[in-house]
Design a binder for these strands. Structure first.
Length: 482
RNA sequence: GUCCCCAUCGUCUAGAGGCCUAGGACAUCGCCCUUUCAAGGCGACAACACGGGUUCGAAUCCCGUUGGGGAUACCA
């Protein structure tokens, strides 16, 4: 039953521009991308902007830039659904002419009353097909009288069956559906009409979309049949859930691609993470490039159950990418964060060295960037509370002055020399190296943790190290309670 | 309410009737490495929702229950 899919395919991603690109949508786009790249064919981007009130042109651009950023490529489009409305109407007229659709003169108010009535009785409301029974003459009279009408699809008899690549054979009882509306009374097509016409005209072979459309598919299937005599292959992806097992919502944190980007998540990491949320490439592999994922991707490998979005794992994966990406690939995505913090651009080699030092210590690009500015700062803010231990030691200022002198005397300001200088002094003073290392770290970086001290000092530089040790000694002498 | 979908560690998952004493990863907790913080290495904890079948044998197949999700618009 599960035959391997053959290419070329024509797939589409069809977001509505009512907000930023959601991670759920991004994942749908990713699976379409993976399938298209794996089998060959075309990825069509279609913006479903027919709800003019909620659609926004800026969002359309946003979505495109988010897709480009994350690494999803489309071959055709973006097509704006709003520009195709006349075509949708035209196809509806054809159905009308063929008797596969009919005019419905019932007012929305009447329908609403009937719906409420049905609800009160605990029944499922289905349009009672009042107008389906209208004679040609009755229809003409109303038309002549200018009575507004909607166009309804005449649902064919029989259960609706279709195959879903993830769920298998689907069978919906006919009475779960009713004669749904194709054209509203203002002549505008409904979503169902638009999607089906567009999918037909664009030659879509595989419809890969969110699970929330599974219940819409029984409407689309007979429409496809009425309009084109041909139905695409469907694959309905499970939804992404929040930690509360509810639909991923804003309360939990970031939900849009844009937000993750601003937090400092790498595009590669987000693509990788989202692709693995519901798909396993096999052999317990988790860190894969887009190339590798394309190679290994199969629709059969997709999971049918909903997945909870695990922020911690995303952060871990992001760190793995930060750790392993060549600097040349990291730099462009890191640059905006550095710029935001006012890091000078004059010495890229030094920035690279600093970044390399902090890679294993940052989960996001933002954290990574935040480590950089202090290397360029004139002076550092020392916190008395964090330095309580150092303040309590009356001998320390003297030691640090001695250390500064040793560092100043080092011929070459590099890690081995600095290391030797400090350890020699510690021996002479008969203290543990750690007794000098910790305060020196505080002096030079205003932090209790961080990269190995000598790497740190070498990058801070001879001049700034001397200055900071001096500053810190002064701070200790001033802040110490008398 | 009705229709539909889903169900393995806390989370993402491997698992296509015997390979399962249920594997990997994140998280958590130990230990190692270490000047600190990370990273890394090693280890521990931890799951087949429940009940019936089918079968010599079931995490895997069937039915039911429960739980979760989705759909029920002249929204998309």
């Amino acid at each position: 039953m599960k035959t391997a899919l053959q290419g070329p395919v024509r797939v589409r991603f069809a977001p509505s521009p009512t907000g930023f690109l959601h991670v759920g949508g991004a994942r749908t786009a990713i699976y379409n991308d993976l399938l298209r790249q794996n089998l060959g064919g075309s990825f069509i981007l279609r913006i479903e902007d027919t709800d003019k009130a909620r659609s926004d042109e800026a969002m359309t651009r946003q979505i495109q830039s988010a897709l480009t950023w994350i690494g999803v490529e489309w071959d055709e489009g973006p097509f704006l659904q709003s520009e195709r409305l006349p075509r949708h109407r035209e196809r509806a007229e054809e159905l009308l002419a063929a008797g596969k659709a009919y005019r419905c003169f019932c007012t929305p108010e009447l329908i609403e009353t009937q719906r409420e009535e049905a609800q009160r009785k605990g029944e499922t409301f289905r349009y009672p097909r009042t107008c389906a029974a209208l004679t040609a003459g009755e229809t003409e009279t109303r038309l002549a009288g200018g009575v507004p009408y909607a166009v309804r699809f005449r649902l064919p008899e029989g259960n609706i069956r279709f195959h879903d690549l993830l769920r298998g054979e689907m069978d919906f009882p006919q009475d779960a559906l009713d004669d749904f509306i194709l054209l509203r009374s203002d002549g505008s097509p409904t979503y169902h009409m638009s999607v089906v016409v567009d999918d037909i005209d664009m030659g879509i072979t595989h419809v890969i979309r969110g699970d929330d459309h599974l219940s819409n598919t029984p409407k689309h299937v007979p429409l496809f049949l009425a309009l084109a005599d041909r139905v695409p292959v469907f694959a309905h992806l499970p939804l992404i859930l929040g930690p509360d097992r509810k639909r991923l919502s804003k309360r939990i944190g970031s939900t849009s691609v844009e937000e993750f980007r601003n937090e400092g998540i790498l595009a590669q990491a987000l693509y990788n993470f989202l692709a693995l949320l519901g798909w396993a490439p096999g052999e317990d592999r988790e860190l894969l490039s887009r190339r590798e994922m394309i190679e290994l991707f199969t629709i059969e490998g997709l999971n049918a159950s909903a997945a909870v979005f695990d922020r911690e794992k995303l952060l871990w994966m992001n760190q793995q990418y930060i750790l392993s990406l060549p600097f040349a690939e990291l730099a462009p995505q890191l640059a905006p964060f550095l710029a935001e913090l006012g890091v000078p651009t004059g010495d890229p080699a030094r920035v690279e060295a600093i970044v390399d030092l902090y890679r294993p210590r940052a989960k996001t690009l933002r954290e990574l960037a935040e480590a950089v500015p202090s290397f360029f700062a004139e002076s550092l803010p020392y916190d008395a509370e964090a330095c309580a231990k150092f303040l309590a030691d009356p001998a320390l200022p003297g030691y640090l002055e001695a250390l500064a002198a040793r560092f100043a005397a080092v011929p070459s300001f590099d890690v081995p020399s600095l290391d030797a200088a400090l350890r020699t002094l510690a021996e002479e003073l008969e203290v543990k190296a750690a007794a000098l290392i910790h305060p020196a770290r505080m002096a030079v970086s205003a932090a209790t943790g961080g990269p190995p001290l000598f790497d740190l000092i070498a990058l801070v530089g001879r001049e700034a190290t001397a200055r900071r040790l001096g500053d810190f000694v002064r701070f200790l002498r001033q802040a110490r309670p008398a």
